[in-house]
């Protein structure tokens, strides 16, 4: 077991460093885009809704609210949507025997996780510098939800990679299905504001739970009575188990041309 784990560790690290080089290499400002992209995203939402929402969510400062929605969601989206064609895009890498298909998703999750976390911390620091008080007494809880979200993204990414390989059409369909998820996950509105019958439907979505829980962990006064960590945990474990099982069954077929 030990040498195998070591091989996976080395492979994932090699893929991680490689992805890091290729992801922003072609852009002029390079890694700065990690920061600029979500910043632009948040700024636009802030401009659009800032005034209205500010009055309707008294429990949390609006920029902080957006930050806790946009960043985790973008992180999830990066991992999941680019997993669909992970095999096609990296076919050449699979010629090296140590590289397994699952390593591609692991490395991607790790890279997006690191980028997302660093950017989140930087933007939080930025907010703190502009006079926003940020309470960190729930830091372990926050980290827990953050890791759970990453694990959830990894599991879904793995599933999507298998789907994309078995049914190439899914590369067209799944991005379409992912688009409404942006609205259904409450990136730009708090679920507490959604009227009763509709709120229950939105609460089927584990991603909505993740975003609300992250907000609650940062701002204790933010209402989170309607969301549950255990729901997110169950979804994540179930999906992880299912994806891994499916991967085990399909591992040979993934290599067959």
């Amino acid at each position: 077991m030990k040498p195998q784990l070591d091989l996976i560790r080395r492979t994932v690290l090699a893929l991680f460093l490689r992805e890091m080089k290729t992801r922003f290499g072609k852009y002029r400002l390079g890694y700065l885009w990690c920061l600029l992209e979500p910043l632009a995203h948040i700024s636009i939402l802030l401009l659009l809704f800032g005034y209205i929402m500010h009055r309707s969510i008294p429990s949390i400062p609006f920029p902080l609210f957006l930050l806790c929605g946009v960043l985790p969601f973008l992180m999830f989206n990066q991992i999941v949507s680019r997993s669909l064609n992970a095999l096609d895009a990296n076919q050449g890498l699979l010629s090296y025997r140590p590289v397994q298909a699952i390593d591609l998703i692991l490395a991607r999750t790790l890279l997006e996780g690191v980028i997302g976390t660093v950017v989140f911390v930087l933007l939080l620091l930025g907010l703190a510098l502009t006079g926003q008080t940020i309470a960190l007494d729930q830091l372990p809880t926050l980290c827990g939800y953050w890791i759970l979200l990453l694990l959830f993204s990894f599991s879904l990414g793995l599933l999507f990679m298998l789907l994309g390989h078995a049914y190439p059409e899914s590369e067209k369909l799944i991005p379409l299905l992912l688009k409404p998820l942006y609205f259904l996950s409450g990136v730009m509105f708090p679920l507490a504001l959604v009227p009763a019958p509709y709120q229950a439907y939105l609460l089927w979505n584990p991603l909505a739970h993740a975003l609300e829980l992250i907000r609650h962990a940062l701002v204790a006064s933010y209402p989170a009575g309607h969301v549950h960590g255990s729901y997110l945990l169950l979804w994540t474990l179930g999906l992880l188990f299912f994806s891994l099982l499916l991967y085990k069954g399909r591992a040979n077929a993934l290599r067959r041309s």
Binding site: R10, A14, R18
Partner: peptide
Amino acid sequence: QGSMSGRENVKFVARL
């Protein structure tokens, strides 16, 4: 990988 240099490609395989 076409966009990476020869050295970077070699490094990747050497890491494996």
